[in-house]
């Protein structure tokens, strides 16, 4: 069982697991959000990027807040997230070089088909949320500092609800990703805010459906930022910049636009809209 030869062989095996990782050079790490990953967007566009440049993009999918933290610590070369205010702070604090708008989609309010709060079909997200609060209908919050979470908090504010004060048993912050939030909402007959891309690609919709969509306040903008090499010398600035340049190039933008599930487009490129 334990003779010396098997031991050495196993050791070599263990080392083999470690070594190629450090020898691998033409790759970058991008910390991104669960929505871009879970929706399958990266699975669609990264092979195209790699075919063109030979650069492998390794994606860590986290909530926006956590993804920015990963960049802050220098553990990623670029961050690709969706919370404009947090992104601008990230750059202002010197952790990022420049924020580049890439694409948008929108948030949708998901709820049980039985619609216990009676808000289905409306377009006014603020009114819908107020109704949910008044009727104490079950609501699932990401509660994880993600882009979707901060968007949800902004929407409560827009509805004039101080959610920190008003929340009760009906409001559950689960501290997990979008998929987990949708799974929880599905199994507990609750409302939940989701980005449209994750919702379309989500497989366990069970009794859930879109109840509110189309409000312009539900707009969801994505941006990409190169982590500041001046802060962290380990940042692969050339390869990272190449990735960003490609994303906002006509070619990258076309690749994003061409990603569809069941004929439905998930993300809308808008890199040229400098105000986004």
């Amino acid at each position: 069982m334990f003779n010396r030869r098997t031991l050495i062989a196993a050791l070599a095996l263990g080392l083999a697991a470690v070594v190629p990782a450090t020898a691998q050079d033409k790759s970058i790490i991008v910390s991104s959000t669960t929505s871009t990953q879970d929706s399958g967007l990266f699975g669609h566009i990264l092979p195209l990027f790699k075919a063109k440049t030979g650069i492998e993009v390794k994606v860590i999918s986290q909530g926006t807040g956590q993804a920015l933290d990963t960049g802050r610590r220098g553990d990623a070369d670029a961050v690709f997230v969706h919370a404009k205010a947090q992104e601008e702070k990230f750059v202002a604090d010197g952790f990022g070089v420049k924020r580049n708008p890439v694409m948008y989609n929108d948030f949708v309010l998901i709820g049980p088909k039985s619609d216990p709060a009676g808000i289905k079909g409306g377009q006014d997200i603020a009114r819908a949320l107020t109704t949910i609060k008044n009727k104490k209908a079950a609501f699932i919050s990401r509660g994880d500092r993600s882009g979707t979470h901060s968007a949800e908090l902004n929407l409560w504010k827009a509805a004039g609800v101080d959610i920190e004060k008003e929340k009760g048993d009906w409001y559950k912050a689960i501290g997990q990703g979008m998929g987990a939030a949708l799974n929880t909402a599905g199994s507990s007959n609750a409302y939940v805010l989701s980005d449209r891309a994750t919702w379309i690609s989500f497989k366990n919709k069970s009794n859930l459906a879109i109840v509110v969509e189309g409000d312009k306040r539900l707009f969801n903008q994505y941006g990409v930022i190169l982590v500041n090499p001046a802060k962290h010398a380990s940042v692969k600035k050339d390869l990272g910049q190449q990735f960003i340049d490609w994303l906002i190039s006509p070619e990258g933008q076309k690749a994003i636009a061409s990603y569809k599930i069941n004929g439905e487009q998930l993300f809308y490129p808008n890199a040229t809209d400098t105000g986004a």
Binding site: A17, V18, V19, A21, T22, I29, K58, I60, R73, G74, D75, H232, S234
Partner: peptide, 16 residues
């Protein structure tokens, strides 16, 4: 982590 004591090894996010 790059900000941690062994960050220079570049081992984070690897099988190692």
């Amino acid at each position: 982590s790059r900000s941690g004591p062994l960050g220079t090894l570049g081992l984070l996010f690897t099988p190692g």
